[in-house]
Amino acid sequence: AKWDNLPDMTPLGLGNALLALTEWPAVVPLWFLRDLFVCVLLAPVVLFGLQRWPLATMVALLAFTMLGEPLMVLQRPALLLFFGIGMWVRVAGNDEAAIDRMARPLSWGLLVMAAVYLTLRIGRIPIGELNDSLQTSLDILLRITMAAAFWRLTEWVRRSSFAGFCTWLEPYTFFIFCSHAILFEFSGIAFRRVFGNYGDNLFLVTFLTLPMLAVVSAVVGLQVIAWSRPLLAAFNAGHGAPPLTRSSGLEPRRA
């Protein structure tokens, strides 16, 4: 049981439980936050390289993605590559129109990736049995094409009836992002007892309910800590909590 898997009450044990220094943390999603902190610390170095030697820097990030896991700098070295791609897009001075042009062909690539994964599924070929380099390559291509598809999807959302709600929810996204996986991990304990595990008939209830619970919890939680600047700094990057009511409607597209 998760409650029995408590860390050693030593500096290293607590460090591993929270930051995955030498082994997996107490709650698995914390490894992602740990890697996120490392990426933020390395961001100035990556930015320096992109401003002076962009192509060489991206090649180095790709090499680190493919070969850097044993170094334990990052649990998933690909995260730094994705950081670098995002920074490169901005350093190169691309505006939204340019990003739209890049995203269009890449988003169609998602269909190709879906076909690849569907072929593996039909052929009953486990992803885990593929060569490590091939697994990493497929993962990178899937995430890049999916990011492009979601970029294009945002344009549809902006012009849909959901635009007002999404605009209102936007200030909460960082808090949702940082808290949802931890909430899933522990709320899932209770939900699995009632609705079963993945593959059970009622698992769909868990699948649909937990995301909504994460959004509601983040909105309520951010409002609760809105009075405290230290808490906002610790849990919401210093940003204040927006009012619960906000005008809806389509915001003008940035130039």
Rank of each mutant, 00 (worst) to 15 (best):
R192F: 01
V215E: 07
I85P: 00
P230F: 13
E96I: 09
G93K: 06
W3V: 13
L208D: 10
L110C: 10
Q135A: 14
C166D: 04
A218I: 01
P29N: 01
G199C: 14
L142V: 13
W168L: 08
Q75W: 15
T173E: 10
P211Y: 15
W31N: 03
T10F: 13
I176H: 07
L62F: 13
G240D: 10
F203Y: 15
A43Y: 10
L80I: 12
P230A: 14
R124A: 13
Y117E: 09
G188T: 06
W24E: 14
N16I: 06
R34Q: 13
F83M: 08
F195N: 00
R76D: 03
L71D: 09
G238I: 08
Q135P: 01
F175T: 04
A237S: 10
L79M: 09
Q135H: 09
A234G: 00
F191A: 00
L118E: 14
A78E: 08
F165C: 01
L19F: 12
L6F: 10
S137W: 10
S137I: 14
Q75I: 11
Q223S: 05
V216P: 01
W168Q: 00
V216A: 12
A147Y: 15
E23F: 05
H180S: 04
V45W: 15
T209C: 01
S247K: 15
A241K: 02
T65I: 07
P29G: 03
L232P: 00
R246G: 12
P70Q: 05
F37I: 06
D95F: 05
W151G: 02
L19K: 01
R152D: 03
R143D: 06
S248Q: 11
L19M: 09
Y172G: 02
W156A: 06
C178K: 04
F37N: 01
R193E: 02
V40H: 05
V46T: 11
G68R: 04
I225R: 06
R229V: 06
E23K: 13
L110D: 05
A114D: 08
A233Y: 14
T206R: 01
W24F: 14
I127Y: 15
V215K: 05
N16T: 03
M146C: 11
L67Y: 11
V73H: 05
P105K: 07
Y172D: 03
P242N: 05
I99K: 13
M113F: 08
A233K: 15
S187R: 03
H239W: 11
P77A: 08
D200R: 00
S228Y: 09
M66W: 11
G238D: 07
V219I: 15
F150M: 15
G123R: 01
P252Y: 10
L130M: 09
R52P: 01
M113S: 02
W88R: 03
M72K: 11
D139N: 08
G221A: 07
A226H: 09
